[in-house]
């Protein structure tokens, strides 16, 4: 208890000193006094140094903090501006008309109509939704978005998307992918549509996976899986069932940074995965190669670099066929 108080005391002292030192108008005497205080006790020094380290570290986010402060400043200026207008008699009435007109226009524009977002092969994009959630689309992906005051619904029509959902208990965030319904209340997860199965991967929070009910609203859909962070569900359409397993987030979400990561993944699966990104598909020419285990990180922004890496790391040879397909052969002179 004594030691604890001692620490707190040192921290109060060092806070006072550092606050003094940051004033920008330190005299030589004051600086010397600080140095004496710091050096007279090791505990003084360590308390002050950790605070200096913290202050230095904060410089790294200075730009963001400053930007946010400026935005707050602008918002405050707007509010003050609005308040002033409200007190200005006749012009307040005019402003009232303007406000009505604006509200009318806004309501009219918000007649529910899903917005559609689409990426081509090799593209990625980020969409900021009205509710504060953020959606990131991977290559060759199409989604319809219906997010307004009363509901939050996303339909994944093809491809893969990552969602960072703003918490709102009253309005569950729903993602439909074919037959699959994914619901959550504020978390980060991705949904990927495959030909015969969908993949739901959870980075944080809780996600409920169920089968989509087309017509009714009253019967509760049967929950197929409840996913926790680090868990992934494979939903198979044919059997209407989901299996849950753990997964590696670094690999599953690498696409968000333009990367594809594999660990002991058979080349056939790697090629299938990479082909989502490239207009000129890769194809394995020697069937022996299909099971070749591939480990590594590829930048999916650049097919040339990917092919180079495969060639040199796995002793492959790439040959482009006249129809654009890139054939992968085993190198002869191994």
């Amino acid at each position: 208890m004594m030691a604890m108080n001692g620490h707190q005391d040192k921290d109060t002292h060092s806070t006072r000193w550092v606050a003094r030192m940051l004033s920008g108008t330190m005299t030589v005497e004051e600086t010397a006094a600080y140095d004496r205080w710091r050096d007279e006790d090791e505990a003084n020094a360590s308390s002050a140094d950790s605070l200096w380290d913290m202050v230095d570290s904060l410089d790294a986010v200075g730009e963001q903090a400053l930007e946010e402060e400026m935005v707050r400043d602008l918002e405050a200026a707007t509010d003050a501006h609005k308040r002033r207008r409200r007190f200005m008699g006749i012009s307040a009435i005019a402003a009232g008309f303007a406000a009505v007109a604006v509200i009318g226009a806004t309501l009219w524009m918000q007649v529910p109509k899903p917005a559609q977002y689409e990426t081509q092969k090799g593209q990625r994009t980020t969409v900021y939704l009205a509710d504060g959630s953020v959606m990131q689309l991977n290559t060759d992906t199409k989604v319809s978005v219906m997010v307004n005051d009363s509901r939050r619904e996303i339909t994944l029509e093809r491809g893969e998307a990552f969602f960072s959902v703003k918490h709102d208990e009253k309005h569950p965030f729903l993602v439909y992918a074919g037959d699959t319904k994914v619901q959550d209340l504020g978390t980060k997860f991705s949904v990927r549509m495959g030909a015969s199965s969908n993949l739901i991967s959870v980075l944080s929070g809780l996600v409920s996976v169920s089968q989509r009910q087309e017509n009714n609203n009253n019967t509760r859909p049967q929950e197929l899986a409840l996913l926790r962070p680090g868990e992934q569900a494979v939903y198979t359409a044919a059997t209407h069932s989901a299996t849950v397993a753990t997964f590696d987030p670094d690999r599953a979400f690498a696409w968000r940074k333009g990367k594809a990561r594999y660990k002991q993944t058979p080349l056939a699966d790697v090629v299938e995965d990479l082909n989502r990104y490239f207009k000129a598909p890769l194809e394995i020419a020697d069937s022996d190669l299909r099971t070749l285990p591939v480990t590594g990180t590829f930048s999916v922004n650049d097919q040339g670099a990917v092919v180079d890496a495969l060639e040199s790391a796995f002793s492959l040879m790439a040959v482009r066929r006249s129809d654009g397909v890139i054939l992968l052969y085993a190198q002869q002179n191994r």
Binding site: T15, S50, W52, S57
Partner: peptide
């Protein structure tokens, strides 16, 4: 400073911030 320390620094002896650090004593 007091509030930032409370949130970011675990004890007076150890920093929990491995952010890139540059010149010290930035005044």
């Amino acid at each position: 400073l007091r509030r930032l320390r409370g949130r970011l620094v675990r004890t007076s002896a150890s920093t929990v911030l491995p952010m890139p650090r540059r010149g010290r004593r930035g005044k």
